[in-house]
Amino acid sequence: MKSSFLRRLINAPYLLWSAIFIIVPLVIVAYYAFTDESGNYTLSYILNIGEYKEVFIRSLVYAVIATLITLVMSYPVAYYMSRSKVSTQKIMMLLVMLPMWMNLLIRTYSWTTILEKTGLINSFLGFFGVEPLKLIGTPGAVILGMVYNYIPYMILPIYTVMTKIDNSLLEAAEDLGSNGWAKLKRVILPLSLPGVISGITMVFVPSVSTFYISQKLGGAQTLMIGDIIQKRFDALSYNTGAALSLIMMVVILISLAIMNRFTDDDDGGIIL
């Protein structure tokens, strides 16, 4: 009896911590979203979200495009990695992870050196007499920034799942007449789906909520919802900010729920 009580006690610090610092803050976000500055219940902030419709749509569209590009770029790399020699795999893993240890801000910022009107690409083009292109300040630059920053989050889960695919399954597929493409379509793709899903999640969520990338690489009309939230909080408009955060959270959860319908996760509880 005593030991089982002790065992329960071991949970107490974390239980307390997660209640105070995970659950309560979310409740408070909801509280601010549904009250006005003097604490009275109001729906006006939530209902006013319509004003930000375009920003929401823009954020979602950018994030979806960035996620898709990331996926297309990562998949062959992850496959190639998973089928390489163990020593090559290690080196490649290291190379993929290394940029993640660099600060996101600086990684994003160094793109300006490349993309600016007098940046490296345009200097290079100018060498051949090509007029400078408008690269920075475009939606493309923002999406590029997202792809660049979050691509390791796509490669790693896909790679991890792929290394777990037993080689004999691939051989069985070949044995049963699949050439490279059929093998990919019928065996590798379905078996790597869990990795793809978690990769998509890990890229989509930060992309849709980013608030630095669009400020650095975007222009006057590429503002993202994360930027607005940051600005609202910086301007002390907690209620609007909270309402925006809440809606964004809901949008993300809905997106994730839709995606999770494609897989059954067997471990680690439900995602809300």
């Binding site: 037993d166 004999s168 399954l169 044995d175 007449g177 699949s178 065996v187 379905p190 078996l191």
Partner: peptide, 26 residues
């Protein structure tokens, strides 16, 4: 030539029917 593998190498993402149908579908 077809092979029966040591640990069968059945496709975990397909059911029995689809496993058997695999070669034909391909």
């Amino acid at each position: 030539v077809n092979t029966i593998f040591q640990r069968y190498a059945l496709f975990p993402h397909l059911n029995v029917y689809e496993n058997v149908a695999f070669g034909l579908r391909v």
